[in-house]
Amino acid sequence: MILVDRMALHSDSFRLENISLTVPTGQYGMLMGRTGCGKTTILESIIGLRRIRSGRILLCGRDVTRLNPAARGVGYVPQDGALFAGMSVRDHLAFALVIRSVSRRQISRRVDELAELLGISGLLDRTPTGLSGGERQRVALGRALSFRPQVLCLDEPLSALDAQTRGQMCDLLKSVTRQSGVTTLHVTHNPEEAGILGDCHLRMTDGTVHVMSEYDQPVLRDQEG
């Protein structure tokens, strides 16, 4: 479960007060809102990249509010993938496991398993240069899931993709997250994505997060779609 409890956060450009949200265990949470409203900031504070002023963040029942991001065990897929230059796709998938000193045999088994799951077995020896947008995001997703995190954070992972690739990635995200049972928080401003992927829908307006019922969905789609 992802639980943010009355979080307050101040940065140079804006401040967020009294933010609370919940994504139940194993569900796919969709956080929507206009560009610049602070969605990414909330995501970054869950990952631990931003220090919060007050409030609590709980991941799977554990209070991680003051915990180092490296110890939180959150998979993170940023907007453009942020792949590591000069590293092969195989190195990307193995990265978190090498850091954790996992045995070489287990790493190689996990890399093959992930590559097959994400359909990137043919790309294992390529470097990020020359990969297409969809391929990059698959690698970034594989890298984030490699160490079997319990929580996955996605920051507009599909926004830079063309319509067809986006559809394929949506299907992939859905099946992969279902299969791994990971609790996911996905930030987007695209209501279509939210409709396809989300189990629970959260919307940021005027600095607060509202939970939306199933009933709200079509209305929202009409407004923005």
Partner: peptide, 11 residues
């Protein structure tokens, strides 16, 4: 961003 990802991966 890349550095932040690396940290989230446990670095």
């Amino acid at each position: 961003r890349c550095e932040q990802v690396a940290i989230s991966l446990g670095c």
